[in-house]
Design a protein around this nucleic acid. Structure first.
Length: 761
RNA sequence: GGGGGCAUGGCGGAAUGGUAGACGCAGCGGACUUAAAAUCCGCAGACGGCGACGUUGUGGGGGUUCAAGUCCCCCUGCCCCCA
């Protein structure tokens, strides 16, 4: 199957191989024993079952391909503050996902039955080296490579049974803080390097092989999970940190995880726990039993998939040359057409001997193709770069083109991509930058995480059944059509099983695309979930009809955009001649001086230019489409009734042209049609965006708010240009002030010009 | 358990520390109509008052300020992410 995208994806993948950022290793993976395939963590439910087969997922060790995203962990974390155009919460989620924590690796020597060193050591990772004197046991992950060797004969059966049990659990189950902590002792002991004590070695479900060193030190007095574990197995709990100013009985029977002061810690007694972390790490380094270590929660990215669909990882395995990249001229690796989908076994590709057998590109000896395909997130991590150079057949993209168009100014996606796609794309960008293929650090300058459309949902609280809205006869008193029970009503993500979906084509057939679009924009801010409400759709439709009647009425009265003085043939700033209205260019509008306008005209112009200001602002920077639509409504209200008729042709034409140009992005079809109806030249979508005329916004008088001790007590119409002293004088003389101050002079007067005067008695 | 976010009329939602509730939906009253729909005009947080107005009000409790939905602290509830 020839897939151009695969050739390009393969090229991208080779970049990682060449950079040394792709590797293969044994990994613990989720294995579905029924479907015989690997599952992603997200595809395993809370009970540890496959989302597809329902089988209990097992842990298996398999050789898989990884991309070394951890090599970029620091950059991915440290560059987050630069992403000022991203929502704070997405940045926080990425920072938490990367999870950089500073701590130490400490070595616990394994001892034999007589307490003598056996020559082996367990290295634990901890963020709390300050608590090492409180260690009462050391725990390995059941998958830890030393488990088998360190298990004593009398524990062997128990250990094997436990490992088998744990392999059936999901990571989430294993590490949940409120879940049971289970484990078994191996029989061996280790020596605490700080105080020489011998403590038992255990394995437990709450320690993961993939995190840190796969081993932790158990400090029950200062870690919640260690505490639960110790209590269950009656292991000692020794407090070594106490809250400052308290004694060692301060939290007996509980856990203290906050900072404090060290006790029972030899030469470190009395130190603050914060400084003891560094001091104990330094001691470990100088004495050779540990070292400072920065640990990440982020794991390398497992990209192997045992699927037919997908781009094959472009390498060939040769017995003498090792892993050899498929030469560029042989890309893409074409997928075979004759495939048996048994649904079982490894990748369907692995069963096709003809396809798998190939000559090594290096030495020509018989070799075998890689049969794993790549995770689909590989493609989505760089597709946007291709848009800068879509017709290039030689390269995925050319640097000059990608540097010209990228990074993406405004990216839009759901919050569900906060970690996966958005983190992978940032990783790709940094790698390709370091390979010299592009010249920027981040792929997306601004990010909008849009909300979901939710549908009205009816549910019978007793039976738990969902009821289709069509079956609810009276929405104001929703009842189950079968039983008559009162239904629960709420808005939820649309889903077939909940009968709460909305068919967009039905809405468009009935009201048109303009209504549907405006409803969506108006109903809620873009980043919020939106509750689909037919009554609101209807309301939006009414608004567009009002505009239609407004324009039609104007056209019937002979108003035209073609012959008003407001229209001037102008050359646009881009040099393209366009005969268009320039409603906002004050130098062109001779009628715009306040003296030449009637009071009604000035009022109308103020409404027009207020709308221009507000809508332009709403479309710039943070997108506030909902308030932009409400400004359109205000403008059309201000043009309704007698208001438009009372204005002369130039002002009326300016108002009409402005309304349609402002409306065009929201209701493009209607705006264009009405533009033609009014005799506008060209297309409404090719007009210059209006610029507000400051002179039109000026008022002679403004309502001044009079506050007495911060409470609004009245209004006063005052000259708009009055200075502070005048405003204070007017306020003090006002009827409101006389009534509330009862003749006494206020002790304090705050004047906010243009807004209010606050008189404090 | 940790981190993040949110909380405003009957509903969706507006409010650079400066008149809370813009705009809309639902509602109520009126006009038009034989009637209904559509349309147009008006009312509308709550409580009190015929009214002018007054009191109160942005989840709860404190604080900063002449002034707090907005800033700070504590609490409650809901949502998301991570364990």
């Amino acid at each position: 199957m020839d897939r151009p995208q695969h050739r390009l994806d393969a090229r991208a993948a080779l970049q990682f191989l060449e950079a040394g950022l792709a590797y293969r290793r044994e990994a613990t993976v989720n294995w579905d024993p029924v479907d015989q395939t690997v599952l992603a963590n997200e595809q395993v439910d809370g009970e540890g079952r496959s989302w597809r087969s329902g089988a209990l997922v097992e842990k298996r060790q398999l050789r898989q391909w990884f991309l070394k995203i951890t090599a970029y962990a620091d950059q991915l974390l440290d560059d987050l503050p630069k992403l000022e155009g991203w929502p704070e919460r997405v940045r926080t989620m990425q920072a938490n996902w990367i999870g950089r924590s500073s701590g130490a690796e400490l070595d616990f020597a394994v001892v034999d039955g007589e307490g003598q060193p056996s020559g082996e050591a367990i290295t634990v990772f901890t963020t709390r080296p300050d608590t090492i004197f409180g260690v009462s046991y050391v725990v390995l992950a059941p998958e830890h490579p030393l488990v088998a060797r360190l298990t004593t004969a009398d524990q062997a059966i128990a250990v094997e049974a436990f490992c088998d049990l744990v392999s059936r659990q999901s990571d989430q189950e294993r590490t949940a803080e409120d879940g049971p902590k289970r484990g078994v002792p191996l029989g061996a002991r280790v020596r605490n390097p700080a105080n020489g004590e011998l403590v038992p070695l255990w394995i437990a479900d709450y320690v993961l092989a993939e995190y840190g060193t796969g081993a932790v030190m158990g400090v029950p007095a200062h870690d919640q999970r260690d505490f639960l574990f110790a209590r269950r197995y009656e292991l000692p709990v020794r407090q070594v940190i106490i809250p400052e100013g308290s004694d060692e009985h301060a939290y007996e029977g509980g856990v203290w995880t906050e900072p404090g002061v060290l006790i029972h810690s030899g030469r470190f007694d009395g130190q603050a726990s914060s400084s003891a972390k560094a001091a104990i790490t330094a001691a470990a380094e100088s004495e050779g039993w540990g070292r400072g270590k920065v640990q990440y929660r982020l794991r390398d990215w497992l990209i192997s998939r045992q699927r037919y669909w997908g781009c094959p990882i472009p390498v060939i395995h040769c017995n003498s040359c090792g892993v050899v990249p498929v030469p560029v001229e042989q890309l893409p690796v074409e997928l075979p057409r004759q495939v048996a989908f048994s649904g079982k076994g490894a990748s369907p590709l692995a069963q096709l001997e003809d396809w798998v057998s190939v000559a090594c590109p290096c030495c020509g000896q018989p070799a075998r193709r890689e049969t794993d395909t790549m995770d689909t997130f590989m493609c989505s991590s760089w597709y946007y770069l291709r848009y800068s150079d879509p017709h290039n057949t030689a390269l995925p993209f050319e640097r000059s083109k990608v540097d010209r168009w990228l990074p993406v100014d405004q990216y839009v996606g759901g919050i569900e991509h906060a970690i996966l796609h958005l983190l992978y794309s940032r990783f790709f960008t940094k790698v390709l930058r370091d390979r010299g293929l592009l010249g920027f650090d981040e792929p997306f300058t601004r990010l909008l995480t849009q909300g979901m459309v939710q549908g009205i949902t009816y549910k019978n609280p007793h039976s738990g059944r969902y009821i289709a809205p069509a079956d609810v006869s009276d929405p104001s008193d929703p009842r189950d059509p079968n039983t008559g029970e009162v239904l629960e009503v709420f808005f939820e993500k649309m889903s077939k099983s909940k009968y709460n979906g909305v068919d967009p084509t039905a809405v468009i057939d009935r009201y048109g695309a303009d209504t549907a679009r405006m409803f969506i924009l108006f109903k809620a801010p873009p980043e919020k979930d939106l509750e689909w409400d037919d009554a609101d759709v209807e309301g939006q439709f009414r608004f567009l009809q009002r505009i239609w009647r407004l324009i039609e009425g104007a056209a019937e009265r002979g108003l035209s955009l073609a012959d008003g003085p407001a229209l001037a043939v102008q050359e646009g700033s881009d040099g393209r001649a366009s005969s268009s209205t320039l409603p906002g260019a004050p130098e062109l509008l001779r009628f715009s001086t306040p003296e030449e306008c009637s009071p009604a005209e000035r009022e109308l112009r103020r409404a027009v230019h207020t709308a221009i200001t507000a809508i332009s602002d709403d479309l710039d920077g943070d997108y506030q489409f909902n308030t932009a639509v409400s400004e359109l409504m205000k403008l059309s209200n201000a043009m309704g009734g007698e208001h438009l008729e009372a204005a002369g042709l130039p002002v009326a034409a300016e108002a009409l042209a402005s309304l349609l140009i402002l409306l065009a992005p929201f209701a493009p079809h209607l705006a264009e049609e009405l533009w033609q109806k009014l005799g506008g030249s060209g297309s409404v979508h090719r007009q210059r965006w209006p610029v507000a005329d400051p002179a039109a916004l000026v008022r002679d008088t403004i309502p001044l708010v009079i506050q007495i001790k911060g409470k609004v007590r009245g209004n006063l119409e005052v000259p708009a240009n009055a200075d502070k002293a005048t405003l204070e004088k007017l306020a003090l003389e006002s009827e409101v002030a006389l009534r509330w101050l009862e003749g006494k002079a206020p002790s304090r007067v705050i004047v906010v010009p243009g807004k209010l005067v606050n008189l404090v008695p």
